[in-house]
């Protein structure tokens, strides 16, 4: 019986593989080898499982460490903003984020009494909301014209628009600074001063080529039949835009709104150049100016951190509640603000 089986196996074996010379003992060996092999595999899988778990632990460890490094500046900022000045300069407490003793928010209160940050918050809010609103209107109208209407010179115009995206913004800033000065908008004192400041801070950035492009692409995905159907139904272009296209492109519009608002919140260079009246400072420049002339003795870093925290909180709130839109907008744009 065994011999027969063996014969069959030897016949099955590829002729190029060396045929065993002693068929009688081969059977038993082969059997035990097979079992051995099976055991090896089990051991191997077990080993692999252990390695896998170790690998997973390693990955999580790596991510946790990196995540800690990434959030640490924020943690430290908040912790320090809650410290008293004496606690900050106590060398024993350098590494202690939250020392014992009562925590309070007196630094935050001081930010509003010691500096003009409150006023700057309001300035930024006004400029941000107004410029975002106007910018959205311009963006929507332009994207609509470029995506839905057909008119002569359209393609040439769009190509020219895209070409301007290649040029670094600094190149525009120089002439714009001059333009604004020539127009007298840098004269920000007296009666019309606030209006000059407002124009200076909003107008040059109302047209964002990139957002027009983004929205145009989004509008193009809306099937043309919807537009034709609306036309047959007697809808005007503007009504179609308002009732159909805007609701359908709402996610993109929200992304644009948030990024635009964040941009206004974070902008530094342009207002720094053009704001001549301190009363019209925006938040970022106000923050930098308020703490740039620190005294040598003991700069009030907890107070500074309280101010920084205050500036950062709105951004965090927006991020927490609208993360989806921000991340979607950013992954498609790659520009900040």
């Amino acid at each position: 019986m065994d011999e027969l089986k063996n014969e069959v196996t030897t016949q099955d074996v590829d002729p190029e593989v060396s045929v065993p010379t002693e068929p009688q003992t081969q059977t038993g060996d082969a059997l035990t080898q097979g079992v051995m092999h099976e055991r090896d595999m089990k051991k191997e899988t077990k080993k692999q499982d252990v390695m896998k778990i170790l690998g997973k632990i390693g990955v999580y460890l790596f991510l946790s460490v990196m995540a800690f490094i990434v959030v640490f500046p924020f943690l430290w900022m908040i912790a320090t903003s809650l410290k008293h000045l004496s606690e900050y300069y106590d060398s024993n407490l350098d590494l202690v984020l939250f020392p014992g003793g009562p925590r309070d928010f007196h630094n935050f209160a001081e930010v509003f009494t010691e500096t003009d940050l409150g006023r700057y918050f309001i300035n930024t809010l006004i400029v941000g909301v107004a410029s975002t609103f106007m910018s959205l209107i311009i963006t929507v109208l332009s994207a609509f014209a470029l995506s839905r209407l057909k008119f002569k010179g359209q393609n040439a115009f769009f190509a020219g628009l895209l070409a301007t995206m290649m040029i670094p913004g600094e190149l525009f800033t120089i002439t714009n600074y001059k333009t604004v000065a020539d127009l007298g908008w840098t004269n920000q004192f007296g009666d019309g001063g606030w209006f000059n400041a407002f124009l200076t801070l909003t107008l040059p950035f109302l047209v964002s080529v990139f957002y027009i492009y983004l929205l145009k692409q989004n509008f193009m995905q809306i099937p043309n039949e919807l537009y034709l159907a609306a036309k047959v139904d007697g809808t005007t272009d503007l009504k179609y835009l308002w009732k159909v296209m805007i609701p359908l492109a709402l996610p993109t519009l929200i992304s644009i709104t948030i990024l635009k608002m964040m941009g206004a919140w974070n902008t530094y260079m342009w207002p720094k150049l053009t704001t001549t009246n301190q009363d019209f400072y925006l938040i970022t420049i106000g923050l930098r100016e308020a703490f740039s002339s620190a005294d040598n003795q003991q700069p009030d870093i907890p107070l500074q951190m309280a101010a920084v925290t205050l500036v950062s909180i709105p951004l965090f709130l927006v991020f927490i509640f609208l993360r989806k839109y921000i991340m979607r907008g950013v992954s498609r744009s790659g520009i900040k603000g």
Binding site: I137, I138, L141, S142, F144, A145, L146, L149, K150, F151, K152, G153, Q154, F157, L161, T164, I167, L171, F172, I174, T175, N176, K178, T179, L203, P204, L206, V207, V209, I212, D237
Partner: peptide, 30 residues
Amino acid sequence: NSWKGWIYLLPAIILLLIFTVYPIFNTVMM
């Protein structure tokens, strides 16, 4: 119809002319 598109683009065009197109030429000129 062939003009309507430009009317929608008008605000963007005016601002672009002042703050984007003119600066390119003017900066090169300066």
